[in-house]
Write a protein that binds this DNA or RNA. Sequence first.
DNA 1: CTGTTAGCGCTTTCAC
DNA 2: GTGAAAGCGCTAACAG
Lengths: 341, 341
Amino acid sequence: MKQKVTLKIIAKEFDVSISTVSKALKNSNEISEEVREKIKAYADYYNYKPNSLALQLRAQKTSVIGVIIPEIVHHFFSTVIDGIEEHANKRGYNVMVCLSNESFEKEVSNISVLTNGSVDGVIVSIARETQKKEDYNHFEMLLKDGFPLVLFDRIVDSLKCDKVIIDDIGGGFKAANHLLEIGSKRIALLTTEDYITVGALRKVGYRKAMQSAGLEVDEDYVFKINDTKNLYRQIEKIFHLEKVPDAILAVNEIYAAIAMKIAIEKGYKIPEDIAVLGFTSGLISKFTSPPLTAITQHGYLMGQQAAELLINRIEHTGPKEFQKEVISTGIKIRKSTYIGE
Amino acid sequence: MKQKVTLKIIAKEFDVSISTVSKALKNSNEISEEVREKIKAYADYYNYKPNSLALQLRAQKTSVIGVIIPEIVHHFFSTVIDGIEEHANKRGYNVMVCLSNESFEKEVSNISVLTNGSVDGVIVSIARETQKKEDYNHFEMLLKDGFPLVLFDRIVDSLKCDKVIIDDIGGGFKAANHLLEIGSKRIALLTTEDYITVGALRKVGYRKAMQSAGLEVDEDYVFKINDTKNLYRQIEKIFHLEKVPDAILAVNEIYAAIAMKIAIEKGYKIPEDIAVLGFTSGLISKFTSPPLTAITQHGYLMGQQAAELLINRIEHTGPKEFQKEVISTGIKIRKSTYIGE
DNA sequence: CTGTTAGCGCTTTCAC
DNA sequence: GTGAAAGCGCTAACAG
C-alpha cells in the first residue's frame, strides 16, 4: 500500500512547517491566502485525510462504540445492532462489533480488547456461559474504572450500570392473556431452561396471567426445552399429556413453529383445536401456515436506546444515576390464534 | 471515567523512566529482577493495559478490518459477518461493521471514515444505489492507493481487487435442473429487476438449464418483482397465465414462500400440481408447509474466504494477482418439490 | 541495568 | 504570517 499523505509530507513539499499546513487545511486565517490555497489544492489532489488514530490518540476519544453480542446470525441481535448503528451514526460514532459466541472466555477477551482505548464505551448482551457461571468480574472491573457500559437483553441486576431490557414478564403476560381471551383453558408453555433469564421471565408473565384468570399453573404443562438436543422429540412430548392442551405458548418462534407443525401432523386443527403463539424474532412466524400469532420484540428500538444511554454516559449528557429502560412488547395477531375473517 | 494507568504514571510512581517500565512489563531481562517484579505487581494490581491506539499509531497497523454491508438484518449478511469474524479473529484481527443501508452516499462516507487509518483493509458488498448509479469512484481511489479491498456478493467486475461471489449462475442452473428432473415442463421464474446482479445471474442459469433440456424460455413465464411494491399482488400474476406453470423457481425464499402460499390458497397441491423452489438465505424455507426445497448459500464460508483474501492482501501473504473466489451453492431438497417418502 | 531520544500523525499554545 | 515545541501513549535504538 502506498504511503498516505501526511501533514509532514505536505509540509516538506512546500517547505513550510507542519503546523502551517495543519492550520492552512483548517482554513485558519493565520495563514496567508496564497499559501493556504496551494496547500489545500495539493491536499485535495492527493486526497489527504487526517489520520484518525492520531486524532483519537490526541483527543483521547475514539468516537467508536464496541458491541459484544452472543451471536449475530440471529434476527433479534441483528435488529439491535441496526438500532445501535442508527443512533450511533447520528451522534457521530462508529460501531465495532464483536461476537462472544456464548463463550465466557471470548466475552472476557473481547472486553479486554475493546476497552484498551479502541472504543469509548461498550454495549453488551451477556453470553450464556457467563450467565451460567455467574462470573461478572470483567464487567465489575470496568465499572470500577467508570468505563461506560450498557447491558441489554441478557443483563445482570447486580451490575451497577445502564441497562435496557425487553419487558419479558409483560410479554409472557400479554401472550398468555391473549390465549385466555380467545378461550383457551389448558395452555402449555414451551420454554427454555431456567438459567436463561428471558425464558424464565416469560414464564413468570405466563404464570401471572394464569393466576389473574383464576387458573393454577400445572407444571406438567411446562416444558423446558434444551436447545442442544433434538427439538422435535422434546417438543413432541406435549402431545403425550393425558389431556392435550388447547393452546401452546412458546417462548420463541422456532419452538412455536415446530409445535405447530407436529400438531398439524397429528391431525389437530390450528387454531380450532389448539391455538399456538410464539415470541418472534425473525420472519418465520409470518410464513408458517397458518401464520403465527406472536409477541414482537422491537430490537431496533432496544438498540437505539442502548446506544443513547451509552453515548449519554460517554458524553455526560444524561442523568447521573444509572437507568434501566424497559422496552415493551407488541403482539401481532395472526391466524394461529384467530378464527374468523 | 477514571484516568487509565499509563507507563508514565507507573514510571512516576517508582521514579524510574518510562522505558524502564515498558521493558519491565515486557519481562526484558535488561531490567533487574527486583524492579521488574514490583512494576509488574503494580501494573497488575491497577490493571494496566497498553493503549491500543498508541500501539496502532506506532505500528502503523490497526489489526482491524472494516466491513461495509447494505444491511445487517438479513440472514445472509449476518452469516457472512460471522464467517469474517471467525477468520479475522483467528488471525488476530477485529471487525468493524458499518451499514450502507443500500445508500450510495452512506457507502462513500463509510469508506472514507474507515480508510483514514482506522482499519487495515475493508470488505464490502456494494449498495444497490451504487450499483444503479454505477459510480465506483470511491473504490477506485482506494485501489489506486493500493488499499486492501475485497468485494463480496455484490461486486463489480471492472474493479481490480479480490472478490468472492456466490456461483449464482450455477445455482440458477442447479435449481432449474432439479425442477426439470422431477418432470416440470413449464417453469415460472420469479426474479428481481435486472440491475440486481444476483437475480440476473440466477436467471442466466435458469435459461441455461432450460436450453440444455431443449426447452425455450418463454418470457411470459419470467416475472420481475419490484421489491418496493406489493409483493403479493405482483406474484399473484403468475396465476393469471393461460397455462399455469407446473413449477415455480424463485430467486429468494420470500418470493417462494409467498408464491407457495398463494398457490395453496388457490387450491393447487404442492408439489403435485406445482413444485416450488427458492434460494434460501434464512430459516423460512424450513418452516413453510410444505418445507421449501432451496438452493443454499454458504454465507459463512463466503465470509471466511473474504477475510482470508483481505488479510493475505494486508500481510502480503498470498498471490500477487487478484483472486476471484467462487462459492458454489448447495441444494436442500424438501417436500415442496419432492413426492414420496 | 537504566535512561535518553526520536518518532508514529496531529493539534495547539506560544514565540517570533 | 509562520514556526517551534509540547504532548497524546508507546516502542526501540542507542547511550551511558
